[in-house]
Amino acid sequence: MKPAFSVLFFTVTSGIGYGLLMWLVGVQLISSAAVNVNNFLIAGFVGLTLATLGLLSSTLHLANQKNAWRAFSRFRTSWLSREGVFSLVYYPVILAYALLIYLSKGELSLLTYTLGVLSVLVALATVICTGMIYASLKPIRQWHNPLVTPLYLLFSITSGALLYACMLYVLEGQVSRSITVMFLLLLAVSFIAKMLYFRVIGKPDGATIGSATGFSQAHVRLLDAGHNADTFLTKEFVFDAGAMKLLRLRYLMIILAFVVPLGLAILTLAWDIAPAIFIAMLSLYAGLFLERWLFFAEARHVVRLYHGDQRA
């Protein structure tokens, strides 16, 4: 699949934004300490801005934006519609929560508490829907895979945790050990899940040129695709980065998204070298961007079987 920049930016950036907001509200609901209203509003603003920038970017890849409002109409069947609805519902919930926190100067009433829980649930639902948009597509076996949605969720919460740790350092002047430890745990789980994902997609499976043409008991190969210039199908689905390049980028992704943030977060914990956590954040963001690029570049749609591939 051709990686579209707007979609990569959307899934990574919105994921971090929702992740940060989930941590921000979640920690506030669980901890007994009084809420610092100003800090909450600043961090919340950053989270919501990231989520919004991502959502706006996602509309850039629409070829007919004037009909985008219709995307909220098929909640019962379409994951894309569900994502749209949840992302929209999130705004009144989180804004009402922030307003109540502001008005009550950080005191949690039952209503505030309910809104807070609701905001976390809606943010979770939005990220799950993003994952399900891809996981529900049967023609792409690298996406139609039970690990895809958990990975979207894990990366959102993990990157959100690191950004939350960064925000806490900026606002409160010290590194939160508990959040950094949580980040490290989540990073480890994400790493295991991503390696499992690579293992699963590495096994040949699914449709072949035989089932695509109906000749399952013969050797089949494409002689002519019927056109001599690119078509919508080749432009959208046939993306070949080259196996060697993909492999190298996988290693680079592992270094940027896992190894560097892991090392720097441990450095932060062990020696209180706080600025390291910001470099970890930048590295993780770049790593996740690369992870999302690979998610597209390595996905082989079955329509490629009609353009020269032998198996999905």
């Binding site: 089932s211 050797h219 002519d224 032998q310």
Partner: peptide, 20 residues
């Protein structure tokens, strides 16, 4: 509507077609 042309060879069963 698009037309693709394939070579189909019944003498050899494609190994790539089978679960490998």
């Amino acid at each position: 509507n698009r037309i693709r042309t394939f070579e189909v060879n019944k003498a050899e069963v494609n190994q790539a077609n089978l679960p490998s």
